[in-house]
Amino acid sequence: MIPELFTIILYGTLVILFVSVNALFLVWMERRVSARIQLRRGPIHVGWQGLLQTVADAVKLISKELVLPSESDRFLYILAPMLVFAPLLAAFLILPLGPGMVMRDLNVGFLFAFALTNITFIGIFIAGWSSNSKYALLGAMRAVAQNISYEIPLLLSTMGVVLLAQSLKMSELVAAQNSVWFIFLQPVAFLIFLCSSLAEANRAPFDIPEAESELVAGFHTEYSGMRFALFFLGEYTAIFISSAIAATLFLGGWEGPFLPGAVWLLIKTYAIVLVVMWIRWTFPRLRSDQLMSFAWKVLIPFAIVNVFITAVVLELQKI
């Protein structure tokens, strides 16, 4: 019992450490990528290539006052950032870093991570409701409406891969891509997955919930200091996790020559994150109705057709 408790605490500490460093790195990367795309230079003065800029920002955020709106629902207001952030930590349980290097190789695999993101939606709702502000409430409703619509194509797009691998287990999904990556067999599914995970993370061009010009900042309008930072930590962790799942499902996960598996997974994951950032700074924001019709009229039909064709081809191969 004691060693087990010890490993749980050790893993938990490692995950929290990684999440913090990852968020600091991704914020820096986002600023550098956006600067490059907009022909600016971005943060370059603090540390090598400005790497320590986000550390300075984090220290500033920690030292800021935690404002509590007077008319808010105190208990729920404090609970919401934790509910958004905590489930994402548990999603690290299923990420495979190498042969046998996964904390829990669950039978349900990546579905576990998607189930956990559902709990963060409740956190977003609570944040919007307890702030007692119109902007926060509207932002929360838009965010959740968007998230639950895009969850359908997200799950459907993974089904083609699952049919090919005959398993939901992360380790078996990696093993099935030994000869050829699933991105070549399931290119449509990969595109649908990428679009839907962008929308799930509320990233541009799907960032209606935090449209600055009309909603101030969306569901976290009333939050300040470290509570606000927790939402951002959550957003960047969500991007990392969905990119890591995409890397495992479509790009062969930890498999690669010479380097250890964890390094390959990180390389592939950050490559997808780079594409995600590239998309954010290249495309304009969609309108709310365009967003919904894109999910229901484009992504879902394509995802269903993709699953159907995959199943038919697999059956025909058996004959």
Binding site: V108, L111, F112, F114, A115, N118, F121, I148
Partner: peptide, 14 residues
């Protein structure tokens, strides 16, 4: 685990 995940996705998420 499958039923647990479905419970969360369907009952909490939807």
């Amino acid at each position: 685990e499958f039923l647990a995940v479905m419970e969360v996705i369907v009952y909490i998420g939807a």
